[in-house]
């Protein structure tokens, strides 16, 4: 972005696994939510030329870093100074990606809407606000599913299910700003699939040498629920020798493991909607977040709705950027007076 004194609106989706940013000048970026500092070790210090690493770069150099995933399980660990610092580094990095130099005198005003996991929104609002100090001029925090709902204008009689890595966030939109009662958070999301798949690999293919990062990559490429479209095979070392393994059944079992809690929560929330609107909400269930890309997931949830009389589940057009685009929409719609009241 060219440095001007113009005001820039941005939406940030601060996710457990990935964080994205959308800016009013059209810039959009996504990064892995990892932050690492070189270990206090002679070799690490010599090899690592930078003070801090963010995103894929941090992940790739993890063996020499004190690696943090600051929003693991959907909240910042309270009082963990390093995790709070990691959140700030992540935010700084995202802002730098759209070309804003924080110390530049010519920098225009930055107005940011930050979408965070619903649980972090509930318990860590003030700390998240503090983390934005010096990064933006004014800040508004919203829960991720609300940001998605706003972005796709699903504000009345709709349910948003934002399935990320650390949490699955549910939000029923009933024409009002959602309260705690309208929202739910489950710890069953992408990370729990990874853990399950790793466990199944160890049980069924104990000779295969795998890491959680390899598992995560496989899930992102081949995850599915229901019938597989093709066999899932991977090549990994076994006693050092590259060996091919068929992991179709393990992938299926791991991905299916999140279905029962998600279906149950969805049905429970649907049953709590005022009876005259339940049918409308059932027909307007929207999936967002990286884990909504699991093949066959909408159909599986529709099947779960069939016991209530049927429903329609769709995936947002761009699940990775749905949260940040929604945040950007909120940022652009808020007035100058609003932003003045939200200044840091």
């Amino acid at each position: 972005m060219e440095e001007t004194n113009e005001t820039l609106c941005i939406g940030i989706d601060l996710g457990t696994s990935r964080s994205s940013i959308s800016a009013s000048d059209g810039e959009r970026h996504v990064v892995d939510s990892y932050v690492g500092w070189p270990l206090d070790d002679m070799v690490a210090r010599k090899l690592m030329k930078k003070a801090v690493f963010v995103g894929r770069e941090a992940l790739d150099n993890r063996s020499m870093l004190d690696l943090r995933r600051p929003l693991e399980r959907g909240v910042i660990k309270e009082g963990s100074a390093k995790d709070e610092e990691a959140v700030q580094e992540l935010l700084r990095h995202l802002i730098s990606l759209i070309g804003i130099k924080q110390k530049s005198k010519n920098r225009g005003k930055v107005r940011a809407v930050v979408g965070v996991p619903a649980e972090a929104f509930r318990v860590s609002r003030q700390r998240l606000r503090s983390a934005m100090d010096g990064i933006a001029d004014s800040v508004m925090l919203v829960s991720e599913p609300f940001a998605v709902a706003y972005g796709v204008e699903a504000l009345l009689h709709a349910m948003i299910i934002d399935i990320g890595a650390g949490t699955a966030d549910f939000c029923v939109m009933q024409g009002r700003y959602p309260t705690d009662a309208d929202q739910r958070t489950l710890p069953n999301a992408g990370d729990s699939i990874d853990e399950r798949l790793l466990k199944l690999m160890q049980e069924h293919h104990p000779e295969a040498q795998v890491s959680i990062y390899m598992i995560r990559d496989w899930k992102e490429k081949w995850s599915f629920v229901g019938e597989p479209k093709s066999r899932v095979t991977v090549t990994v070392p076994a006693k050092g020798k590259a060996t091919e393994f068929d992991i179709t059944n393990q992938m299926s079992a791991a991905c299916e493991s999140i279905l029962p809690p998600i279906s149950e929560t969805m049905i429970d929330l649907l049953c709590r909607v005022e009876p005259e609107y339940q049918e409308q909400v059932r027909q307007n269930i929207i999936l967002a977040g990286g884990s909504s890309l699991i093949s066959g997931l909408p159909e599986a949830l529709e099947k779960a709705c069939s016991e209530l009389g049927g429903g329609r589940v769709t995936v947002v057009k761009d699940p990775i950027f749905a949260g940040s685009d929604g945040g950007l929409a909120i940022a652009c719609d808020a007035t100058n007076a609003d932003w003045q009241r939200l200044s840091l």
Binding site: R125, M140, L141, Y150, L155, L156, R176, L342
Partner: peptide, 20 residues
């Protein structure tokens, strides 16, 4: 509806901003 919900979201945030 958007405008009204936006107002509610802003008011909610202003509560946090003010308290800090």
């Amino acid at each position: 509806t958007k405008l009204r919900i936006l107002r509610e979201a802003i008011e909610s945030n202003i509560g946090v901003a003010r308290s800090s």
